[in-house]
Simulated assay, not measured.
Amino acid sequence: MMWGRVQNSWLHVSARSLKKSPQNLKGKSVTEQRWLERQLNDQFVKAAHLHNYRCRSAFKLLEIDDRYKVLKPGFTVIDCGAAPGAWSQVAVQRVNSAGQDPALPKGRVIGIDLLHISPLEGAEFLAMHDITMASTLTALEKLLSGAQAHAFLSDMAPNATGFRELDHERLVSMCLSMLDMADRLLKPGGSLICKCWDGALANKLQQKLSTLFKDVRKVKPKASRKESSELFFLARMFKT
């Protein structure tokens, strides 16, 4: 296996498994029962356990990076909305920030989130920090000590209100805040990956990205559920 790369075998972890039904559903609502059944039979949930990732979302970044090679040994990466830390785990592997391969340059991973994040070797976390606040930018600049990042990552999302348009608007607003941060701290030629939900403001976000990056495209990895409106913007070659 190549260093830091997960082979496609994880795609077939549950290929021969029979569909299972959750037990002890007494007192659970229909929605809760459906969620439990989906989790129990989700191949990416099973693969996350097998490969010791903190959640299934790791495979979204793995697929994007396998295809587009955004993360490389020696890179500095900022992971926005990092909790519980699955994307940071992938970034640590790909940029060699834990020094797991002494023959390769050692990178750096900094994660930011409003929530607590359990410690992860090779990553530094700014927990209890809101990316929309100026104080978070100040704290990040202090950590970087004048250096710049090669990549910004975001799988963040607001707490759901149940109103799709409002949730979509709030997520786009969070992405724009991250983009303002990246505009200050991203190296020329750097990259950005951010999650968005399809909706009226997705084009606004894409247009903003296009003013700052030479190449902007939409991607939807296999780990994004088909029924979800989730998509990712991949922006490369930061213009400065």
Rank of each mutant, 00 (worst) to 15 (best):
residue 240 T to Q: 08
residue 41 N to K: 02
residue 17 S to K: 09
residue 131 I to H: 05
residue 66 D to M: 02
residue 99 G to K: 03
residue 20 K to T: 00
residue 26 K to F: 12
residue 75 F to Y: 14
residue 122 G to K: 10
residue 216 V to H: 03
residue 176 L to D: 08
residue 107 G to P: 06
residue 176 L to V: 12
residue 211 T to K: 11
residue 184 R to N: 12
residue 117 I to F: 08
residue 111 G to P: 04
residue 150 H to R: 00
residue 95 V to E: 12
residue 240 T to A: 09
residue 192 L to K: 00
residue 188 P to L: 03
residue 87 W to N: 10
residue 76 T to I: 12
residue 113 D to M: 02
residue 138 T to H: 15
residue 207 Q to Y: 07
residue 175 C to A: 15
residue 141 E to G: 00
residue 52 N to F: 08
residue 123 A to N: 03
residue 22 P to G: 11
residue 14 S to A: 14
residue 59 F to V: 10
residue 199 G to H: 01
residue 203 N to P: 11
residue 116 H to G: 02
residue 59 F to Y: 15
residue 43 Q to A: 13
residue 132 T to F: 00
residue 199 G to V: 05
residue 45 V to H: 13
residue 93 Q to K: 13
residue 115 L to N: 12
residue 21 S to L: 10
residue 132 T to W: 00
residue 143 L to Y: 01
residue 5 R to P: 00
residue 76 T to E: 00
residue 67 R to S: 14
residue 207 Q to L: 10
residue 164 R to P: 03
residue 38 R to C: 02
residue 12 H to E: 04
residue 52 N to Q: 14
residue 93 Q to I: 05
residue 129 H to W: 00
residue 214 K to A: 10
residue 221 P to W: 02
residue 118 S to C: 10
residue 141 E to P: 03
residue 86 A to R: 07
residue 218 K to Y: 14
residue 10 W to K: 06
residue 209 L to M: 06
residue 159 N to R: 15
residue 122 G to S: 10
residue 93 Q to M: 15
residue 229 S to Q: 01
residue 87 W to L: 12
residue 193 I to M: 13
residue 237 M to A: 06
residue 214 K to E: 08
residue 171 L to I: 08
residue 145 S to C: 08
residue 172 V to W: 07
residue 49 H to K: 15
residue 234 L to W: 02
residue 62 L to M: 15
residue 127 A to G: 02
residue 23 Q to N: 06
residue 196 C to M: 09
residue 39 Q to T: 01
residue 232 F to Y: 15
residue 238 F to C: 11
residue 133 M to P: 02
residue 129 H to D: 05
residue 7 Q to H: 05
residue 179 L to Y: 04
residue 171 L to H: 05
residue 32 E to R: 14
residue 9 S to E: 14
residue 96 N to W: 00
residue 221 P to I: 00
residue 52 N to I: 02
residue 27 G to W: 15
residue 19 K to D: 10
residue 11 L to D: 04
residue 35 W to N: 12
residue 110 I to P: 00
residue 184 R to A: 14
residue 176 L to F: 09
residue 41 N to E: 03
residue 27 G to C: 08
residue 125 F to P: 14
residue 123 A to R: 05
residue 178 M to A: 11
residue 175 C to R: 06
residue 187 K to E: 13
residue 135 S to W: 04
residue 126 L to P: 08
residue 154 S to Q: 02
residue 37 E to R: 15
residue 194 C to T: 14
residue 190 G to D: 06
residue 18 L to R: 14
residue 151 A to G: 01
residue 7 Q to A: 09
